[in-house]
């Protein structure tokens, strides 16, 4: 249990060499070893999605991966992205629609939506709603979050034209 492992990953564009227990989750490594607390842990069993981060561009539950599984990979957290148009569009739309209340699920939803919109910018409204179904929020009732995701997509389309 206490045997530690060496690993390295790129977090938000910066190389990180960590020594962690094999059982350390990626979420805990990001929060405790890297000080990136914007990745939240709400259930630690992969249901709520508050810990969603991007690993090699794909949204993943950081609580369901061991940190060592991210060895050699690129990890992006909510803190790491500046001037990423997709994320900025999402943030603006979330603000507009009162899609933030307590803020605990917010980073997870943003990483989820940004990852999904990057992979498939032309998702249908139904597909966007399906993406939103993956994470949990207890405050907003989802309506504002789904609307914000749809609006962000629309504004990105306009910007791309």
């Amino acid at each position: 249990m206490s045997t530690k492992m060496q690993m390295s990953m790129e977090v938000n564009g910066e190389a990180r060499d960590l020594v962690v227990e094999p059982r350390t989750t990626l979420a805990d490594a990001l929060r405790e070893e890297c000080g990136l607390t914007g990745t939240r842990t709400g259930c630690e069993e992969g249901i709520c999605g508050a810990c969603t981060v991007l690993v090699d561009g794909e949204p993943v539950r950081a609580c369901l991966q061991f940190a060592v599984q991210a060895h050699g990979r690129e990890v992006t957290t909510i803190e790491g992205v500046r001037e990423w148009k997709t994320l900025e569009a999402l943030k603006a739309a979330m603000r507009e629609h009162f899609a933030v209340q307590c803020g605990f699920c917010t980073s997870g939803f943003l990483m989820l939506a940004a990852g999904a919109l990057t992979r498939k910018p032309d998702m249908s409204a139904a597909e966007i709603a399906e993406v939103a179904e993956m994470n949990l929020c207890r405050c907003t009732g989802y309506q504002p979050i789904v609307r914000a995701m749809q609006e962000a997509q629309a504004s990105l389309k306009v910007a791309a034209q």
Binding site: G38, R40, E79, V100, L110
Partner: peptide, 21 residues
């Protein structure tokens, strides 16, 4: 008026400081 919330940016940037943080 339905003005935007003042503490949105903190949460949208992941800077919220909850007790676990």
């Amino acid at each position: 008026r339905a003005l935007p919330r003042l503490d949105d940016s903190v949460h949208l940037e992941g800077r919220g400081r909850f007790v676990a943080d």
